[in-house]
Design a protein around this nucleic acid. Structure first.
Lengths: 133, 133
DNA sequence: CCCGTAGTTCAAGATATATGAACTATGGAA
DNA sequence: TTCCATAGTTCATATATCTTGAACTACGGG
């Protein structure tokens, strides 16, 4: 098993962060992790809302978060200790993470459970409709 | 030609915004557009740094920005008037766009021209190397 | 009516993502 | 030590998204 790769904070890019957090599963994992003040195992995030994330997918999501520089994962016995790298990132890109998490909270607050959790925008649906033209 | 689709501000999602701005070409287009206080045609962005963006790609990038709710595009004669929807988005997700643009500026400032404009992170390169193991 | 400019749409190849199945690593029990 | 359970990773492949040349649409002028 390859040792886990963590980029140096200087190699962390805005694009990488935005890409990592542009996935609803990942941003919710990250938000939960940031809310904690301690490490958490991957298994703690197998349940996202109502959906169950397969563990291979979870593993990939953590890899993306890790390689974007957002989280640090260290093995501790049989499980993994995941922690955010908030401090480092706050220093490199002040205000970025708080703004994203805040926006995420606002969006979650404005979605009581009515609209289904769309990925990204209504675009996909629009295009699907448009096909029958 | 289909009329251009612009989502209502209420349908704009954080994920959509982050996804749209997680591409180096798009974020630089958006940053330039936000810096202007007037509309600009797509052609104004054919040159990104040193690279020339094919017009079909440019068109797709604008579509992504548009459908994420970041820009508004209106035909004006033979060309397109593109403007940001900063105001609306600021109201829906206060501080999000400024934080991203600020982070983008900081990153650009810290990259005199030394490191090549990597997409996202060093991940791709890492994986490429790892293949020959 | 024809041409040039600006942009969109289409199609196909390249890339990335999701996930079941197989594998690795660790710790505890027999 | 060997076996087992738990927690993750890696691999393979199906699916989806992205990129871009070529063809097309829309508008304005001559």
């Amino acid at each position: 098993m390859r040792p886990l790769f963590h980029p140096s904070i200087d190699d962390v890019t805005v694009e990488g962060i935005l890409h990592a957090l542009s996935d609803p599963v990942r941003v919710s994992i990250y938000a939960r992790l940031a809310g904690l003040n301690c490490a958490a195992a991957c298994t703690a995030f197998q349940q996202a809302g109502d959906r169950v994330i397969p563990k291979s997918s979870l593993s990939q999501h953590f890899r993306v978060l890790r390689e974007a520089g957002l989280v640090r994962s260290e093995r501790s016995g049989v499980e993994m200790h995941n922690t955010t790298r908030c401090g480092e990132i706050e220093q490199r890109f002040p205000g970025l993470i708080p703004a994203i998490l805040n926006a995420h909270r606002m969006q979650a607050a404005g979605t009581p459970s009515s609209r289904p959790p769309r990925r990204r925008t209504a675009t996909a649906a629009v295009r699907k409709k448009a096909k029958g033209r």
